[in-house]
Design a protein around this nucleic acid. Structure first.
Lengths: 139, 139
DNA sequence: GTGTTTCTTGAGAAGTGTTCTCGATCACGT
DNA sequence: ACGTGATCGAGAACACTTCTCAAGAAACAC
């Protein structure tokens, strides 16, 4: 039996309120900032549950943290992530799906899963970064 | 100035001797097993150096460990990894490169990098897994 | 509403992987 | 051979995650 607790709702809400991927720690801080006395362990548990149920997507940041995000769809899909502001766009990648299966099969691999994520700078951050670079260059 | 020390050579050698991705910890244990009194910190430093120089490839395992592998080419490429035995096949993915750039551009993203790795079971491990499953089913 | 059951929570301890610190060591240029 | 300073190693420090367990609170039966 799964019980409904305000803690679980709070985590889900905080995740929904966020556009990009957030770390468990960040989510915990955010919840505390809003006055929730929720525990860190509980945040981890809730996130793990959401990920298992398919209500959230998780990935490993290059720094080794686990990042989570509320997903608009339960279907298999990939992400385009701004490495500066965390903005995330869900992308479909039929071509890549096919390619991955193909490559695996060609090499005798079965049960193929794949990790496909694209990191970059979103339009807004590109502008910021460019002007900052210019400022730095002129210093 | 970069010095040549036997420790660095040992790490590189151990990496070369390995077919698939290995964790820093595993590499350290392996080196100790051969009698090298090399320190763990040194292994981490050497691996980071190799990765920066492009002599080694690194990726995050699903468990959050950093895995390293000596690469036969410095060119950008991807991997097909057996999740059971660690066997790794280097794969080219021009199609994916193009797709990634394309998707990024379409969404206004710049400086796009991507993470593309395929995990599966290699032919040998598929056989083992299948027979094991059969054995389990008959129990 | 009351009582019972048992799932969930939260604080902190524990665990794991990685990085940092700092005195000792040793490779390299002269 | 010598001096310099990059590199080493052991362990401490650190960050993130998971585990432990007593206390709290949903859900259910009555």
């Amino acid at each position: 039996m799964k019980r409904n607790t305000w803690q679980r709702e709070a985590v889900r809400g905080a995740l929904d309120a966020n556009d990009g991927f957030v770390s468990a720690q960040a989510l915990h801080s955010a919840l505390h900032a809003t006055g929730s006395p929720i525990g860190l362990a509980t945040v981890y548990r809730a996130l793990a549950d959401l990920a298992v149920k398919g209500d959230a997507d998780s990935l490993q940041s290059p720094e080794g943290e686990s990042l989570y995000r509320a997903c608009s769809t339960n279907d298999h899909h990939h992400h385009l992530i701004c490495r500066n502001c965390g903005l995330t766009v869900e992308i479909e990648a039929d071509a890549v799906e096919t390619w991955a299966k193909d490559v695996a099969a060609k090499n005798g691999f079965t049960a193929a899963a794949h990790v496909v994520d694209v990191f970059g700078l979103c339009a807004a951050c590109t502008v910021t970064a460019t002007s900052q670079a210019a400022a730095a260059a002129s210093t």
